[in-house]
Simulated assay, not measured.
Amino acid sequence: MPWWKLPFTGEPYRSSLFLLLSVPLAIWALVDRGAAQQRVADALLSRRSLLSRVRGLAAVPVDLVALVVAGYCWTGVLLNVVYPIRPLLGMNGEYRDAWGGPSLAGAWAVHALGGLGFWLLVPWILRGYVALWRRIAGA
């Protein structure tokens, strides 16, 4: 697959959802031996995994790091694309000293281009975390 096609597929968004759910599912793996985690992984990642209590818990450190990275990445994309509404979110809305300033249009254009560029990069970052998770899970 060409590098630029990945953000237009459903894979990065299913991966993001799985990484979001993976920590609670790993904790729940103590109760059901990883059955729920396996069903969700099969549905969202389209791969059969060999999960157990130990493998589910072994993935928790990777899950926590991936959750923080995915949250940071998607937040960065969103906040850069919708740059003008930052003051509504309690962030600094001063655009005169921002990249692309002194006009709001210039600042928004520069931040939106950065956000779109980051949007092309985020799926590849998440793909690496999912590959590591699959390796731990035995998929």
Score class of each variant (00 low, 15 high):
Leu64Gln: 02
Trp4Ser: 06
Leu50Lys: 02
Leu17Lys: 00
Pro102Lys: 02
Val69Ile: 08
Arg86His: 08
Ala36Val: 01
Pro123Gly: 13
Arg96Asn: 00
Cys73Ser: 14
Glu94Pro: 01
Asp32Phe: 06
Asn80Trp: 01
Leu120Asp: 01
Leu30Ala: 11
Ile85Ala: 04
Trp133Gly: 03
Gly100Asn: 12
Gly117Lys: 06
Asp32Gln: 02
Gln38Pro: 00
Tyr72Gln: 06
Gly115Cys: 05
Arg47Pro: 01
Gly100Ile: 11
Ala26Val: 12
Thr9Val: 08
Pro7Thr: 11
Gly138Tyr: 14
Phe8Thr: 03
Asn92Ala: 11
Leu67Ile: 06
Val31Gly: 01
Ala137Ser: 13
Gly100Tyr: 08
Leu17Asp: 01
Val31Gln: 05
Ala59Glu: 07
Gly71Glu: 14
Ala107Asp: 03
Trp108Lys: 02
Ala70Asn: 14
Arg134Leu: 15
Arg127Glu: 13
Gly10Ser: 13
Arg47Phe: 01
Leu88Pro: 03
Ala59Phe: 04
His111Ser: 15
Leu30Glu: 05
Gly100Cys: 12
Phe118Gly: 05
Val77Ile: 15
Ala107Trp: 02
Val60Arg: 04
Arg134Gln: 14
Ser49Arg: 03
Gln38Phe: 00
Leu21Glu: 04
Ile27Met: 12
Ser16Asn: 10
Gly100Ala: 12
Val82Met: 14
Ser15Met: 07
Ser46Val: 03
Met91Gln: 15
Leu88Trp: 13
Leu120His: 13
Val81Tyr: 05
Phe8Leu: 15
Asp97Arg: 06
Leu21Cys: 10
Trp4Pro: 01
Leu79Val: 13
Tyr13Ala: 10
Ser49Gln: 09
Cys73Asn: 09
Ile27Pro: 01
Gln38Ala: 15
Arg96Ser: 11
Pro7Trp: 07
Tyr129Pro: 01
Ala131Gly: 03
Leu50His: 07
Val130Arg: 08
Cys73Met: 14
Ala36Gly: 02
Trp28Tyr: 13
Trp3Ala: 15
Glu11Tyr: 03
Arg33Ile: 00
His111Leu: 01
Ala139Trp: 00
Gly114Val: 04
Gly10Ala: 14
Val69His: 07
Ser49Ile: 08
Ala26Gly: 15
Leu88Thr: 06
Gln38Val: 00
Ala70Pro: 00
Tyr83Ala: 05
Val62Ser: 09
Gly101Leu: 09
Ala59Arg: 02
Thr9Pro: 04
Phe118Gln: 13
Val60Asn: 05
Gly114Phe: 13
Leu120Gln: 12
Pro2Cys: 00
Val77Lys: 07
Leu126Trp: 11
Gly115Ala: 09
Gly128Thr: 12
Lys5Tyr: 08
Lys5Pro: 00
Gly56Pro: 04
Pro123Met: 13
Arg96Ile: 05
Pro123Val: 08
Asp63Asn: 15
Leu113Met: 13
Ser46Phe: 09
Tyr13Asp: 12
Leu64Ser: 04
Gly10Thr: 11
Phe118Pro: 00
Ile85Thr: 10
Asp32Thr: 03
